[in-house]
Design a binder for these strands. Structure first.
Lengths: 95, 95
DNA sequence: GTTGACGATGTCGAGCTTTATCACGCGTGC
DNA sequence: GCACGCGTGATAAAGCTCGACATCGTCAAC
């Protein structure tokens, strides 16, 4: 699924034009990016929760050379699926 | 951040009514839930990627009794932040 | 205002995390 | 709509973190 699929879903579900739907989708992701960038948690009760967590990761590795590389500490965005996500039937990652 | 914040952002950014904005947000999450439930990958180029991965989790534990409980294998939704998410300045998980 | 999903605790095991490169698929510009 | 640009995947290894169950309280959603 790509962004266009979501836009189409909005167009079919609401009476807004495709342009408005695209703006809405971009606004949603932009707001989420801003919130996650600000370290704020996004809590959607029936969908899932995005929480930003500071990481103190230490050592990574280069798969081609096998050399250990130093990883500077940063932040990681973690998504926890909500109740409905767990309730949905498990699919074996169909393509 | 909660769903209402996203709805307000859409209302302010587009000319759609609040009702339409709410429908748009719900449609976005519903489409994402359906895709994730179907084991399909959601690819948002500038935002991030949601991919569903089967889990072979083994043993959980009851915090009150300390008893080991068997965890049946299921699926896990993993979110990988995109380029812009990594580019955003790290915040120390402000509240 | 009410309902109910989400958080945290706690232990133990398993999964996630890092970097890098080539190639391909997806997004965006024209 | 097509072509180009570029983001994404997979691998690998070691370290560190999450995950799940169960229950009460809080807060988001309706």
């Amino acid at each position: 699924m790509i962004k266009l699929d979501i836009v189409n879903a909005i167009v079919q579900k609401t009476n807004v034009t495709r342009t408005k739907a695209e703006q809405a989708v971009e606004t949603v992701f932009e707001a989420m990016k801003t919130a996650l960038g600000g370290g704020r948690r996004i809590e959607l009760r029936r969908f899932g929760v995005f929480n930003v967590k500071p990481r103190k990761t230490g050592i990574g590795r280069n798969p081609r050379t096998g050399q250990q590389v130093n990883i500077p500490p940063g932040k990681a965005v973690r998504f926890k699926p909500g109740k409905e996500l767990q309730t949905l039937p498990a699919a074996s990652a169909k393509h």
